[in-house]
Write a protein that binds this DNA or RNA. Structure first.
Lengths: 256, 256
DNA sequence: CAACCATTGTATCAAAGTGATACAATATTA
DNA sequence: TAATATTGTATCACTTTGATACAATGGTTG
């Protein structure tokens, strides 16, 4: 909804009209599920990273990948399209004017931005530690915010985030995408706390462990010193090779 | 992608640019899963019902509902948004020109239609018997076609249908939307054949019956004369009241 | 350094769910 | 009236899931 544009006057010519993309970038750190948010300059108004689609050169997903790289510095990210938001009320001229002025811009606001936009929502699952958040030219902050401490958001981004979370929850047991959020190695407890925040409920420790191990995609590494006064937990690694083998077998068995 | 337009010259002014909707309308009859297709005048080219979004007056879903009613005559239909198709190749000027000319139009093709479109895919589940298919002004046929006998399709509608089917398959056990496809009363065997065509595989009769009955949302009616030389099957009705009660209970139990 | 403590890894039991098979009931046909 | 095809239900083995028990262990504390 606000990308770095070399020449603002080109807006209307370069990009598809009436269409934007917004990305809910999920990360996980300190047993907290977080998303990447921007804050508009000199305001307390936050928003999702987003942008527009180059009319000549970009598939939607390519535009999303571009925005992702611009905001986080990383590439090859797990992406999922989760919905389109197309209310007739999605024209935010007044808000854009406010953002434009707060950013101290002296040029006139390009009227192209005030039209009605249908936005395509994607969520991304990234290893938070590998990212270097980078604000755009109308924001003075770009960083990770706990999913339970989301501040006031511009536009309808609050409901977009809710839909993304719901979608992530649905996919949790269908795909194993969640491992994209984990660091290289982690304990069962780390993984369980991720599941718990996504699902919004507590899980039984022993049964969770049994289930994860039975997936057959975790490689057990060394023990891990927690520093706590108790037995040390094993570290695990997501084994992509085993996962790929499993996928192949599934393909074979599912045919009739 | 081709709706009845009072004045074609208004195209660019009335509707959102670069955005269309396409609808995969599913119906079930004679133990066959079917979708509603249009055929362009004087061609053997078929396409999904679709249209554009009125810039001032319509949410996306409202546009979809309008198109649905225009093509089938019915309202209050089960709808699900299943994806957005935004390849940079989605500009179909040549095809539209061909369609326009084949339809015998004397006016110039409105250049608005030749731009790149991002299309939002919805599927609808309808009781086929209640519909009255109705072609638009560039098509000479609008009717139900077996999912296994899909003819050559215009644009990228083939892959849109595939994605819709896949999405329907995924939702099958999560929601009970499938009953929107059934007539008022049906036998277990009818229902099973619907599940089988959607899933693309045979199911065990006895276990399917057990599972469906255990859902607690089927009301058993009278016996049914099949005309066959065997025991008559019961007729069942989808009991919307029981279903709603179940949903309510689920809401209560799911809270923490 | 030994008793203690909190957490981890694993085993086990009961309940629920699922796949496969058996069999009685019955509407029509021959 | 017997034969036949299909339907409705029961049952058994097997798997999955929820809940509980318990031994192992790394660090803490007296």
């Amino acid at each position: 909804m606000h990308k770095k544009i070399a020449d603002e006057d080109l807006l209307g010519e370069k990009f598809l009209s009436n269409i934007s993309v917004d990305i809910v970038i999920f990360g996980f750190h300190n047993r907290q599920l977080k998303i990447l948010l921007l804050r508009f300059k000199n305001t307390s108004l936050y928003a999702l990273p987003g942008g527009f689609i180059n009319e000549e050169e970009e598939d939607i997903e390519e535009a999303v990948e571009r925005v992702l790289t611009e905001r986080t510095g990383i590439k090859d990210i797990y992406l999922e399209q989760f919905g389109v938001f197309g209310s007739k009320k999605r024209a935010f001229g007044a808000t854009h004017k406010h953002i434009h002025e707060s950013a101290g811009k002296t040029t006139e606001l390009n009227p192209w931005i005030t039209q009605r936009f249908v936005t395509v929502g994607y969520y991304a699952l990234v290893n938070l530690k590998e990212t270097v958040p980078n604000p755009d030219d109308v924001s003075d902050f770009c960083g990770w915010i706990d999913i339970n401490e989301i501040p006031t958001l511009a536009f309808d981004h609050k409901s977009i985030i809710e839909k993304a979370l719901e979608s992530l929850r649905m996919m949790l047991d269908l795909k194993l995408a969640v491992f994209n959020l984990m660091p290289e190695s982690f304990t069962m407890n780390d993984l369980q706390s991720l599941y718990e925040t996504i699902l919004g409920k507590k899980l039984q420790r022993t049964n969770f462990q049994r289930k994860m191990l039975s997936l057959g995609i975790l490689e057990r590494l060394d023990k891990h010193w927690t520093g706590g006064a108790h037995k040390a937990a094993y570290l695990y690694r997501f084994d992509k090779n085993k996962y790929n083998e499993m996928q192949k077998e599934e393909m074979n068995t599912n045919k009739f």
